[in-house]
Simulated scan of single mutants.
Amino acid sequence: MAHTVGIIGFGKMGQIRAAALEEDGRAKILKVFDNYLPEKPRFAVAASAQEIIDDPKITIVFVCATNEVNKPFTIAALKAGKHVFCEKPPAFTAEDVKEIMEVERESNRVLMYGFNHRHHGGVLKMKQVIDSGAYGRVLWMRGRYGKSVDSDYLKTWRSDRERAGGGILLDQGIHMLDLFLHITGAPFDDVHAFVSSRYWKIPGIEDNVFAIMRNRQSGVEVSFHSTMTQWRHLFSLEVFLERGYLVLNGLKTSSGTYGVEELTIAKNRATAPASSFDTEERMVFNVDTSWAREAEHFMDAVSLGMPVLYGNSNQALDVMSLIDRIYSNDHHLSESLHENLQVVGRN
């Protein structure tokens, strides 16, 4: 069966997805819609998102728009009998994702979310090494993901709580949290976090998140920082195991702002102080094939009936549940701190 695609949101992400689909070659793009088309596209332009959802000739809908429409457009497209690919975040809360999953089950259609970082070459190699067991079990992980923004950021929809749903955590940190869950294969039982907006001071839009997490059964502990006050783009994921370590620094992107995507792998050197780095193996991923891999994975599910292993709704629920806990954990911590300060003041 020849599949046809409608893309809702044809900015940067919509165009990236279109190019990847054309490279895959198993689906034809029929229509696109965006309120602000950057230039006249090569495809027919729909008058509205609803036109794409309602079009009986379209079998697949890509939702590449602003965050607040991800949930309603996904639900509407599934109810219309379409397969759906949706960018992250899947929604604003875990309860929202559960509502989507109910419709997904009834629709019997493919639903996949754009957790693109799972498809990066460096991440794929990390997961392969970890799953091999050659380096033993994971002991701990540390992830930092940040970028620099300027005052122009305040003029975009990302600074509007109603449209964005949150700040840097939903915008970027969600990818790192998804990778933690991807590597451990299990949720975190203990979560402690600080969520703040002390520099940009946009209501409801956090500019920093610090969190520590632990899975009690495995003992894996995680340190996490998501920020937009770092003044430089940075991605760093470190995984330390019983018999070695893996460190992924940088991500290969079209803009090049995250630098070189370099994975360092080394065996544990038991002789103290183990300060020699001459046994490290370094792998550099010079080409970003993540978008093509992601499109292939989605089309395999649609055309061949293969399962969605990366970016399925269960994984979306897991990461949104963790995000809910990070937001609520900081809220409760702040309340407790405020109460303690009042007690001290009375004394």
Rank of each mutant, 00 (worst) to 15 (best):
M213C: 07
N208Q: 13
K252N: 03
F235P: 01
G219Y: 03
W231Q: 13
H233T: 06
H233E: 10
I212V: 12
E242G: 14
H225Y: 11
L246V: 13
R243N: 08
G219F: 07
F224T: 00
S254M: 11
M228P: 00
L246R: 01
F235T: 00
H233Q: 11
V239H: 03
E206A: 06
V220W: 04
F240T: 13
L246C: 10
I212S: 08
F240K: 14
Q217N: 15
R214W: 11
E238H: 15
V222G: 00
A211V: 07
S218H: 14
S223K: 01
V220R: 07
W231R: 13
G244M: 03
V247Y: 15
G250L: 04
N208D: 04
L248Q: 03
N215L: 15
E221F: 02
W231Y: 15
V220S: 09
R214F: 04
W231E: 07
V239R: 01
F235M: 06
A211N: 05
D207A: 02
H225V: 02
L251I: 13
L237N: 01
R214E: 05
E221N: 05
L237E: 06
Q217A: 12
F235V: 05
R243G: 06
S223F: 00
Q230H: 09
A211P: 07
G250D: 07
H233A: 10
R216N: 11
H233G: 06
L246E: 03
N249W: 08
Y245S: 15
L251C: 13
T253I: 13
L237D: 03
R214H: 05
F235Q: 00
Y245W: 14
S218M: 15
S254L: 14
G250A: 13
